[in-house]
Design a protein around this nucleic acid. Sequence first.
DNA 1: TTGAAAGCGCTAACAA
DNA 2: TTGTTAGCGCTTTCAA
Lengths: 335, 335
Amino acid sequence: MDIKIKDVAKTAGVSVATVSRVLNGSELVTEKTRNKVQNAIDQMNYHPNATAKYLRSKKTMTIGVIVSDINVSYYAEIVKGIENMAYSRKYKVIICDAQNQQDKEVAYLELLLNRTVDAMILITHMVSDEVINEFVDNGYHIGVIGRFIDSPKVPCIFTDNVKFSKQVVEHLIERGHRNIAFLSGYPDALDSSERLEGYIKALQEHQLEYKPELIENGDFNEEGGYKAFKRLLDKNITFSAIYSANDEMALGVYRACAELGIQIPNNIAIVGVDNNRISKYLNPRLSTVNQPKYTMGALIAEKIIDQLNEDEFDLQRVFKIDSELIIRESSDFKI
Amino acid sequence: MDIKIKDVAKTAGVSVATVSRVLNGSELVTEKTRNKVQNAIDQMNYHPNATAKYLRSKKTMTIGVIVSDINVSYYAEIVKGIENMAYSRKYKVIICDAQNQQDKEVAYLELLLNRTVDAMILITHMVSDEVINEFVDNGYHIGVIGRFIDSPKVPCIFTDNVKFSKQVVEHLIERGHRNIAFLSGYPDALDSSERLEGYIKALQEHQLEYKPELIENGDFNEEGGYKAFKRLLDKNITFSAIYSANDEMALGVYRACAELGIQIPNNIAIVGVDNNRISKYLNPRLSTVNQPKYTMGALIAEKIIDQLNEDEFDLQRVFKIDSELIIRESSDFKI
DNA sequence: TTGAAAGCGCTAACAA
DNA sequence: TTGTTAGCGCTTTCAA
């Protein structure tokens, strides 16, 4: 296993430069030489040392991805998209699970500075726009999902939260609901504030009063949704529908309803966001908003790899992805 | 950003060796020199090039993890455990999503050969024991989860599938069930065959007939569970309980039952495996077997990192982890 | 078309 | 305690 390019060169009776050319598919090698070299490589079971290659070529063929929690389906699906595109382009993916801790997010950005990765993709919200811009201004490559960065060099992919949130709420209004609660996620996430914005807009356009007491934060997870729903009930206010900012929190509401004997959708309608794999297996099946997570991941990976290779003929860097409201039984009931 | 150790040395008025010593926390540097160097580092905003370090030190501080599908909670949770332990030991994790394709699994093993990773953790079943042994014999570091490799150098972590499967089936027998169906996963996965083995053993010990027609394969996912259950029904055979080899397939059964008006647990009892985050949010809450996935991930990462650093005073390499049957409403009903 | 040789940025053996 | 220097294994000019 300690055989190196020099050994191959010796066995093949050529120079290391020629072996290197064969390894990298250079045109300037005769068929005959190539065969000679290839035979030596095969016979000696030679594997080029990637680290040495990286040092010399100043590329690591590696992309880092910072997520809040890889065990959340939304992130996992995006990572799958990134990983697949990267694989097809010979890139590796380092996964950085920041666990919602800002210091871990910042620490992972260090991988950019010390050249462990060629680029970093952020699907998190803790690192500020300023920090991202500073990195980019210093020549580092960063791509983001779920936010917009006002810099000409940062590929951005995000969905129109306001638009689909309005659709969700309008769908509920159309089904006869007048008091619609909203379960929000991490307070500092753009996804939370924009979804709230869409919710409020829809109410306004339909001359419905916006009642802040109908808003609760559920931290984007099942337990948070469960508790947020209970807090809503404790307030003793009227509401007949819930717009949950993701499917996980909606599942928490399902549980609470099951325990309390509340019927979905007859007693309460509910709509989630993300179209998680499980959403259509719930009973009743959960209405939700489909986000093309895998595609978003693949797209951002493609853009950032293109950028690394300066295939800059394709100038588009900002992608607003359309989401689709999927109406299932959990909200398809006219009151 | 192109500042290197030489530049720092010049600014600090010392040699590169001294800077290197400061960077790596060597003892043999006076307080005064250290400060001088540290000031230069801070002032110049110097970040050591990791690639160069890796080449020279023959370590990449990176571990690869091959999973079947990162969007399956079981794998994601294990990866989280690995990632966290790795992070605390300054290691990075490269994620390899093999998508159940053998060629991709094999391709990822290449990362060991070309020294992109220091070690590889396998949570998949496609790579044969022989291949693993060959790698290990050649000095590469491999750890596995969910299987046992008969080699003194491979850390292995697995649960006692037979034991807990017997417990599951005995629990169902105790609740009065005599005809218990079994939903299996990937046919070539050890988890599938061993869980079947435990199922059969329990039947035998209780003098119940083993009926092969009660076995169906559901590929470890929701859709597979849904279809497998329907195939069981189509056979027009009697059964009052289902042991599903994981929670995802159980969710598929839940769906089918909802559509057909079959009551859980009154008409049919069901037990899953994995204790996925969602299992206790389902209605009824799903009985399942808890596997300490996060801990298993952290443990394998610890063992493999210890091995890389030859802290071989701790010789234990094989860990059979105990699983715990969690009885919830989906099976807690005496017929 | 091929080869010689410089050098990527760092660590560590050895010398002082 | 600090400095000098030889590589780590590869790619890539430049020359032949």
